[in-house]
Design a protein around this nucleic acid. Structure first.
Length: 155
DNA sequence: GCCAACGTTGGC
DNA sequence: GCCAACGTTGGC
């Protein structure tokens, strides 16, 4: 069982959008970065848990927990020229990009902000907090995961 | 809007 | 394979 962190811009798709979906489940499309894709395609398994992270907004941080309910399958938004994430080089016969399905497990009472996370010495080595990190899908260590969940439960 | 830190592209 | 130019991410 692996733990993850998945970024989304709340102006585009926030945790509340996911909460309003039927069965609180939706597909996670639009990933166009090879490292992030490889994580989704190769390592993300059904039943894995992930933090839903809000990026590029007033209060960047972790908004809640989601569960992977369907493993990697072709991201068909890459085939549609009208889509923002259209990629002419992705051949439907050999899709370049994948997506997964996620289900909302828990929305935190308050967002655990990036600032909060940086104040935690135990999270000093967390991938998210490293300089220059831009990955939109990344693994989280179990001990980091547990620590953050503790923070969420005590707020 | 700025800019650091990447990632990608394409000519050679 | 190298690397300059360009594009993107994302915090501030």
């Amino acid at each position: 069982m692996n733990y993850w962190l998945m970024k989304s811009e709340p102006d585009v798709y926030s945790i509340d959008h996911l909460a309003r979906e039927p069965k609180k489940t939706d597909h996670w499309d639009g990933i166009r970065n090879y490292q992030a894709r490889n994580f989704m395609r190769d390592d993300m398994k059904k039943g894995d848990l992930a933090f839903f992270y809000h990026s590029s907004c007033d209060e960047p941080g972790i908004a809640g927990v989601i569960e992977i309910v369907k493993e990697g399958y072709p991201d068909d938004t890459a085939f549609d020229p009208h889509e923002k994430y259209f990629d002419a080089k992705s051949d439907p016969a050999n899709p370049r990009w994948v997506m997964v399905n996620v289900k909302l497990k828990k929305k935190f009472k308050k967002v655990i902000t990036l600032k909060n996370l940086r104040e935690e010495t135990k999270l000093k080595n967390m991938r998210l907090l490293q300089k220059g990190n831009r990955l939109s899908i990344m693994p989280v260590e179990k001990k980091e995961w547990d620590h953050i969940v503790n923070i969420a439960e005590s707020q």
